[in-house]
């Protein structure tokens, strides 16, 4: 069975739990004492992921780190219709761009949240400003998408780009980064919540 090393408050772990639920896949979640014990930095856990990060996904002999990599793998392996990660090169290029954004610029919203919730030592004004910059980029993109008659980050249906971006957008309020003014983003979040198999985590609501 698929196994993930998991922490209930991690938006990155939630990314993977959300996609597993949407795909209807059973999995075993192994809770990691991320806080306050920081066991993801322990020598034992560094054997599993030398970067000392969660989540980690195991499936048979395969071990993956990085939530974005997990989405690519799960879509390729368990979505035979290939709607979540289409085989078209142009779509894959666009999706990779937004996966990098989700694991990059958007993680400033995660940093702000870790600062505000768990007292992590970040320059809070700087990470909040960077999180707003990222939200603005996504909002501009989704506005263009809507003008063109679309609803999703890439192409005509939801893809792993939407799954990758959703958690830290939806959780940004936890770090004092309000998303009230990003109207296209808010409409898109509402659509994501209507995807069959959608699940919540603390800080994210059904509606």
């Amino acid at each position: 069975m698929i196994r993930i090393y998991d922490y209930v408050l991690s938006g990155s772990c939630y990314k993977v739990r959300l996609f597993l639920s949407i795909l209807g896949l059973d999995y075993e979640a192994v809770p990691v004492d991320f806080f306050p014990g920081r066991t993801h930095k322990s020598p034992e856990f560094l054997e599993i992921n030398p970067l000392g990060q969660i989540p980690v996904l195991e499936d048979g002999d395969l071990t993956l780190r990085d939530a974005q990599a997990m989405l690519v793998y799960l879509a390729g392996k368990y979505d035979p219709a290939r709607t979540w990660y289409p085989e078209d090169a142009e779509a894959q290029g666009r999706i990779a761009m937004w996966l990098a954004f989700a694991g990059g610029e958007l993680m400033n919203a995660s940093a702000a949240r870790l600062h505000d919730m768990l007292s992590y030592d970040f320059d809070i004004e700087k990470v909040r400003a960077a999180a707003h910059d990222a939200l603005r980029v996504l909002d501009d993109h989704l506005t263009d998408v809507e003008i063109g008659g679309g609803e999703w980050i890439v192409g005509g249906g939801p893809t792993i780009a939407d799954i990758a971006c959703f958690p830290y957008v939806a959780l940004s309020g936890d770090g004092g980064v309000a998303h009230d003014d990003y109207h296209a983003v808010r409409r898109w979040m509402y659509r994501v919540k209507k995807i069959p198999g959608f699940v919540v985590m603390p800080g994210i609501f059904e509606n």
């Binding site: 809770p31 004492d33 014990g37 919730m117 309020g173 936890d174 603390p202 609501f205």
Partner: peptide
């Protein structure tokens, strides 16, 4: 119950409350 499971249960409850409180 393993420590990590106890923590994840309590953190889930507490942070559900945190969203409402803020």
């Amino acid at each position: 119950t393993p420590l990590a499971s106890l923590l994840s249960f309590q953190h889930m409850i507490f942070v559900q409350d945190r969203s409402i409180l803020e």
